[in-house]
Amino acid sequence: MNIQLEDAQAAMKAAIDRARALDIEICVAVMDGGGRLVTFARMDQSNWASIFGSQGKAATSAATRCKSGVIPPESVVMSRIREMEGNNLIYAKGAVPLFRDGMLIGAIGVGGASADLDEACAGAGAAAIGCTTSG
């Protein structure tokens, strides 16, 4: 089971709404359970580099089934996985997996603010569609 477009867009909107409430500008990527992009948005004044950060964190979360910030960046195993995957994974706080009925359906990643604010926005996206962030 993978996230459907309607849910992905609703999660993205909730993350953006949280960013607006926090007065920050972000990029948001929602991936399916296989780490492939379903939907993406960049707020008007967000940093262009956050395009890649949000997607890399979301892919990491989908691949590991956990929050992107809990992966130690110096892990030899995870470094090799990132290399084999094409160097697109980012082991930094700001993405959460999306579980429904105990099954991974995707992940949402945010970039553009502090690590804690990015993760708060991602969490808002998960909550908006009734997903938990642990299986």
Rank of each mutant, 00 (worst) to 15 (best):
D7Q: 06
S50I: 11
A8Q: 00
C66T: 15
E74T: 15
S79Q: 15
R82T: 04
R36I: 14
G112V: 05
Q9C: 11
G86A: 05
C131M: 07
C121E: 02
N2E: 14
P73E: 11
F52R: 15
K67L: 09
A14C: 07
V77E: 15
A62D: 08
A62E: 08
E25W: 01
M43H: 01
N87E: 06
K93T: 14
R18G: 01
R20P: 04
A115N: 10
A92L: 12
L5S: 12
A113N: 03
R18M: 09
C27W: 03
A92T: 03
M78F: 13
I71C: 09
C131P: 05
A128N: 04
I16E: 09
G123N: 06
N2R: 10
M103Q: 11
R20C: 08
M12L: 11
E6Y: 09
R36F: 15
M84I: 12
A115V: 08
C66D: 10
G125F: 01
G102C: 07
D118S: 00
D32N: 14
A29E: 03
V30T: 02
D7K: 03
Q9R: 15
Q45K: 13
W48Y: 13
A29R: 01
A126K: 08
T60F: 06
A128H: 04
N88T: 12
S46N: 01
V76M: 14
I71L: 12
S134T: 02
V96L: 12
D23N: 11
S68H: 07
S134D: 00
W48K: 08
V77L: 14
G34F: 06
M12K: 07
R42T: 13
G94L: 09
L37W: 10
L22I: 09
G33W: 03
I108G: 04
Q9Y: 15
I71V: 15
V110R: 08
A62C: 11
E119M: 10
G56L: 06
A122M: 07
A122W: 05
N47H: 09
A128P: 04
D44S: 13
S134I: 01
A95V: 05
M103P: 00
A59Y: 08
M84V: 14
G112P: 05
V38D: 05
K67C: 12
G123A: 02
D23M: 07
E6T: 13
S50Y: 09
N88Q: 12
G111C: 04
G34Q: 08
I26T: 04
S46T: 06
V70R: 12
D44G: 08
S61M: 08
G56T: 05
A92C: 10
F52M: 13
L104R: 08
M103N: 06
G109V: 11
Y91D: 10
R80M: 14
T39A: 13
I51V: 15
R100W: 14
A8P: 00
E85V: 13
V76A: 15
S54P: 06
A113F: 03
G94P: 11
Q55T: 12
P72C: 09
D32Q: 11
A120W: 00
